[in-house]
């Protein structure tokens, strides 16, 4: 019970000071773990910048970004990255043609039509599809999709953009669907009710009210999915081939930025040569593009969430 004393009873004693030190120490260790993420980003940027800098002392930035011939490992060497960018773009466009309509339609079904029971079945299936390793999709492209395409179009090459596009589309589909689903479900119920009260049908409510209201969230989902497709590596390495070229024909062999990086790392290109440094230049480009897309998409999503909170 309280006793009369002149000393401040609340002043920290020796034991309190001891646990304070311990608490500060723990806090510091936890902070370091969180700060590791910043170090990771800085390391990535530093490594790519450093090696790309060496590369660009040999090859002009403009020649790199606008050249249309990519033959760094063959004579005569040429370091125009556009064929790799075109290959990647072809995959992204092809994958988007599948993932965007299918993903959005699935999301509309999940968010607007499906019963809770159906959701409970479909959501885990999407999660499983999202969890299948990319190398499996690569195998699937090579041994299942390509023969299927070849049966329809006999001119199809063994390695081709179409097959890789299709599996990359399937691969980013679950992500697209679940991000779109989140966006649609963020639209407040009152908006739907208001439209129904005006005599709109479910179709009109979905297309004229819900979708426009969720548009920025849906668009951000597409950007995130496209960024994922750009960074996809194993499926395109296995199925799309290793022939950097500028072509619009999806049945031909191409090469993406990621597949090129894998190709060099598998070979025995000596460390420190310009040929070797190409992978850092390509990776720097890849990192810049995907980071830019992600930052934009996250900004849009953050603003979208604010609107409905």
């Amino acid at each position: 019970m309280p006793q009369v004393s002149t000393a401040n009873p609340l002043l920290a004693g020796a034991s309190t000071r001891k646990y304070r030190t311990r608490e500060d120490l723990i806090r510091f260790v936890l902070f370091l773990c969180a700060f590791l993420s910043i170090l990771t980003t800085l390391s990535i940027i530093a490594i790519l910048a450093w090696e790309a800098y060496s590369f660009f002392r040999e090859v002009g930035v403009f020649d790199f970004l606008s050249g249309t011939r990519w033959t760094p490992l063959l004579e005569p060497r040429s370091f125009g990255v556009l064929p790799l960018v075109a290959g990647t773009a072809q995959i992204v466009v092809g994958a988007s043609l599948i993932a965007i309509p299918v993903g959005l339609a699935s999301a509309i079904y999940l968010a607007e039509f499906a019963s809770a029971k159906v959701r409970r079945v479909l959501k885990p299936v999407l999660e499983i599809l999202a969890g299948i390793p990319t190398v499996v999709y690569g195998y699937f492209a090579l041994t299942f999709v390509t023969p299927l395409i070849a049966a329809v179009f006999p001119s199809t090459q063994i390695f081709n953009a179409a097959s890789a596009s299709i599996v990359v589309g399937i691969m980013v589909l679950p992500m697209t669907a679940s991000l779109c689903d989140d966006a649609l479900r963020a639209v407040p119920e009152s908006l739907r009710q208001g439209a129904f009260a005006l005599g709109a049908t479910q179709f009109e409510v979905t297309l004229r009210v819900v979708l426009p209201a969720a548009l920025s969230g849906v668009m951000a989902s597409f950007v995130l999915a496209a960024s994922r497709a750009i960074g996809e590596t194993m499926a395109v390495t296995l199925a799309a081939g290793a022939t950097p070229k500028m072509t619009l024909d999806p049945l031909q062999s191409i090469q993406t930025m990621t597949a090129y990086i894998v190709q060099v790392s598998l070979g025995d290109t000596p460390v420190g040569t310009v040929e070797y440094q190409t992978i850092f230049a390509v990776a720097a480009l890849l990192f810049t593009i995907t980071l830019g897309m992600n930052v934009i998409a996250h900004r849009v999503l953050a603003r979208f969430r604010e609107v409905y909170e």
């Binding site: 980003t41 995130l224 960074g231």
Partner: peptide, 19 residues
Amino acid sequence: IEVNIGNLAGVPSIVYGIL
């Protein structure tokens, strides 16, 4: 740190390989 972690989750895995 928060924004950075969100962005790191979107970095292609091959870039981690280079790192």
